[in-house]
Structure formats: structure tokens, C-alpha cells
């Protein structure tokens, strides 16, 4: 069931984090990522970890879902850790032939590992608790100042939300075309890499043709419904800051201060 795929892995539930303004969540995620690079010692990571754990707890998202995103970066994680472990010069702890694990290497590998895990967890928490729609709305609003330097912010966010709407439709279409070509003897699974790449042509050409046709239809439908760009447009669901959003900003500032303090003082 391709239609069941939810993009951006949104996890539907009720929580404070879900109800927060998307802008707060975007700002929080970015601050969190930056803070991970500011933190340099054990205490800093403990603070970041506690903050993250608190957010996960508040979000009501089962940790299972959050760590699912880890699978995709598993190899990256291992590679980073191994390289750091073996290739950092310093006081050797263990030596295997030409390779040696140093004290600094161990420290750096652990730090990188924790940093990566936190980074992915933090950003997937944002996408798990915010609908793609809200996310584009939030981004549009945050990037609004860029309009002054002629960045088409509204258009970009409109394109993003249209893309999000059409991804499941095009995926279903891909599936349909694939089955149709398979019914006529197309083979997508065997042969060399080159052959397999070639066999994608009869899949991609009709897909592109249909995507363009859809784009044309959609443009006409949008025009028929008086769409004329972002100017003079009102919002059905405008983003309005509430008390909890102000509170959340406060928490972010406190957290950031704590991270900086951990680096400066300790």
C-alpha cells in the first residue's frame, strides 16, 4: 500500500511538542545541532542528552520510532568511529601491528558517535512531531526576511508542499507503470548494473510524461482557483505564537546558556 506512506515520518499523537509552533521546533532543532558542536566535554554532552531525553519524553513518541532513523546512518556511524579510533595520533593504548588505538582516538570516536546519534535523534524528533505541511509553513515564515533580497520564499514553500502532496501519487504511478511494463516482459531485476539502469528507461519516460501532464493540469486548476502568487494571499491556518511557544523559546535559551557555560567554565 504505497498510499499509506507518510512522508517525513510524522507520528500522529497528542503532546506538548506536537502542539508547539513549527517555527519554535525548527529553531530548537538548529540550536540543538549547533550546541552539539559547541559542547566539548562530558558535562556538555550530558546536558544535551538530558535535554533530548526530556523532549522525547514530552513528545509521547515511542523511542522505537525515534531510533528507527538510526538504521540509515549506521554505516556512517561505524565508519566515522573506526577512523577516529585508529587514526588519531596520541598516547597509544592498544597496538595491532601498524594500527594503534590511542587515548585521544577513543575519546574522539566516542564523542563523534554521540554527536551523530544526538544529531539524528534531534532532527528526527522534529520531523516526527511536525506535519510536513506545518514544517513548510514554519520555514516560509522563518525565511520571510529573505524576501527583501528577492528570494522567492513563498514560491519555494508552495513547491515544497506540492511536491509533498504528489510524491505518494507519483509513487503509485511508478508502481503501475512498472507492473504494466513487467506484464509486457520488461525485466527490472536481473542483469548487470548497466542493463538494469537501461531497463529503467521504459519506466522513467512514461513517468516523466505523466508528471508533466499532471503539473500542467495542476497549474490550470490553481489558476482557475484564483492563485496568483503569495501577494495578497491570506492564510487559513496562520502561525500564531502562544504562551507555550514563548516558554519553549525560554527553555532553548536556558539550554544554550548551559551548554556554553559547560564549555567555558569546565
Amino acid at each position: 500500500m504505497l498510499r499509506e506512506i507518510t512522508l517525513g515520518q510524522y507520528y500522529r499523537t497528542e503532546s506538548v511538542i506536537h502542539r508547539l509552533d513549527p517555527r519554535v521546533k525548527i529553531v530548537a532543532t538548529f540550536s540543538f545541532i549547533i550546541s552539539l558542536f559547541i559542547a566539548k566535554n562530558f558535562i556538555g554532552y550530558v546536558i544535551a542528552g538530558l535535554f533530548l531525553a526530556l523532549c522525547i519524553k514530552l513528545s509521547n513518541v515511542p523511542p522505537k520510532f525515534i531510533f528507527r532513523g538510526m538504521k540509515t546512518i549506521f554505516f556512517l556511524l561505524i565508519i566515522t568511529m573506526v577512523f577516529n579510533l585508529f587514526l588519531t595520533p596520541g598516547i597509544p593504548l592498544v597496538t595491532f601491528g601498524r594500527f594503534q588505538i590511542t587515548k585521544e582516538g577513543l575519546r574522539l570516536a566516542l564523542m563523534m558517535g554521540v554527536r551523530l546519534v544526538f544529531l539524528i535523534t534531534g532532527s528526527s524528533l522534529m520531523t516526527l512531531t511536525t506535519t510536513p505541511n506545518n514544517l513548510t509553513d514554519g520555514l516560509e515564515d522563518l525565511l520571510n526576511p529573505l524576501k527583501k533580497v528577492k528570494v522567492p520564499v513563498h514560491e519555494i514553500s508552495m513547491m515544497m508542499s506540492i511536491a509533498l502532496r504528489f510524491i505518494p501519487i507519483l509513487m503509485e504511478e511508478t508502481d503501475k507503470i512498472m507492473k504494466a511494463q513487467m506484464a509486457r516482459g520488461a525485466d527490472f531485476e536481473s542483469g548487470s548494473l548497466m542493463n538494469r539502469a537501461k531497463s529503467l528507461i521504459p519506466l522513467l519516460v512514461p513517468l516523466f510524461v505523466s508528471a508533466f501532464r499532471r503539473a500542467n493540469d495542476l497549474a490550470m486548476a490553481m489558476e482557475a482557483r484564483c492563485y496568483r502568487g503569495g501577494e495578497g494571499r491570506t492564510k487559513m491556518k496562520p502561525l500564531i505564537y502562544k504562551k507555550r511557544d514563548a516558554l519553549a523559546y525560554g527553555v532553548i535559551v536556558l539550554y544554550f546558556a548551559a551548554i556554553i557555560a559547560s564549555r567555558v567554565i569546565l
Partner: peptide, 8 residues
């Protein structure tokens, strides 16, 4: 499918 813009 080609005239619905919103995701909800």
C-alpha cells in the same frame, strides 16, 4: 488527483 492542492 491533479486539482487537489492541499494535503488535508
Amino acid at each position: 488527483d491533479n486539482q487537489i492542492i492541499g494535503q488535508v
